[in-house]
Simulated assay, not measured.
Amino acid sequence: MTYLLGLTGSIGMGKSTTAKMFAELGCAVWDADAAVHRLYAAGGAAVAPMAEAFPEAIVDGAVSREKLREIIAADTTALRRIEAIVHPLVGLDRKDFIGTVESDIVVLDIPLLFEGGNERNFDAVVVVSAPEAVQRERVLARGTMTEAQFEAIRAKQMPDAEKRARADHVVVTDTLDHARAQVEAIVAGIRETLDA
């Protein structure tokens, strides 16, 4: 039996690092953001339907995220239309991944897992969390967005406290060692139940 473990957490909480820890312990890890990048790349499954709906979003045979941001900013209905194209393709990518991997635990890294109402599709959900000050510091240290952009993204995400309350497991990423110990405990606990 394959155990499906959802992994989520708000921006800057350490989700990518935590996903790598699960992978190091032999879990198969699927990343929703990476799936979208594949779909948007030249030859990706999202290029043709996006070209039909938003021809101005295609640059050099690929979907341009920058152009999509401009389209979304100019048209309030665009995001819903983009999601209607992309979400089913991401779902197919995820299903294909689950069907092809041979691992006892499959970790599905989905940033907006709760926001999309997807928690019922998993055996358990892990929320990655960190203190708000740490979250802010991490995101702004990347140098890729302003404080206003960070706040806008946070405003669209479910509050961390609510995610933690809905989770089966919480990994606090205050230090790497602490996070790793929590991940190891989660994986050991799941493997125990699978072997029982």
Rank of each mutant, 00 (worst) to 15 (best):
A196I: 11
L25A: 03
L79T: 04
L108W: 08
A51W: 04
R120H: 08
R69F: 04
G143R: 07
G116N: 13
D33Q: 03
C27Q: 03
A155K: 10
A57G: 12
A167W: 11
D96E: 14
F150M: 05
L79R: 14
V134W: 14
F114K: 08
R69C: 03
L5W: 12
V36Y: 04
I71Y: 11
N121W: 01
V170L: 04
R65L: 08
P111K: 00
A32L: 04
I58M: 02
L112Q: 09
R80W: 05
A78M: 00
K20H: 03
A84I: 02
I186D: 04
G12H: 01
K163Q: 07
D160T: 14
I105V: 14
T175M: 06
S129V: 03
M50C: 05
K156C: 11
R164T: 13
T173M: 10
E115R: 01
I153G: 11
Y40L: 01
D104H: 06
A161L: 14
V107A: 07
A62Q: 10
A57W: 01
E70H: 14
A152D: 10
T175D: 13
V90S: 05
I186M: 05
I11Y: 02
I153F: 12
D104W: 10
K20F: 00
A181Y: 12
A152M: 06
I190M: 01
C27T: 03
V59C: 06
T146C: 00
R81A: 08
D75P: 11
Y3F: 08
A53I: 02
A188H: 13
A78Q: 12
R120S: 15
D93T: 03
N121T: 11
L112F: 00
T100Y: 11
A179E: 09
M145P: 15
V134H: 10
I190P: 15
T146W: 08
I11M: 00
D93I: 05
R136P: 13
D123K: 09
A155W: 07
N121M: 11
R154I: 00
R120F: 04
V47Q: 04
G99I: 05
M158D: 13
D177G: 15
E70Y: 12
W30F: 09
Y40Q: 13
E83A: 05
V127R: 08
H37R: 15
A45R: 08
V86F: 01
A130K: 08
Q182G: 06
N118V: 02
K163R: 15
T76K: 14
A84W: 03
V107P: 10
V127H: 15
Q149L: 06
A28F: 00
G99N: 05
L140I: 14
A23T: 04
L4T: 01
I110F: 09
V125R: 01
I105L: 10
L89N: 11
K95N: 05
V126T: 14
F114T: 06
T76S: 12
G99L: 01
K163H: 09
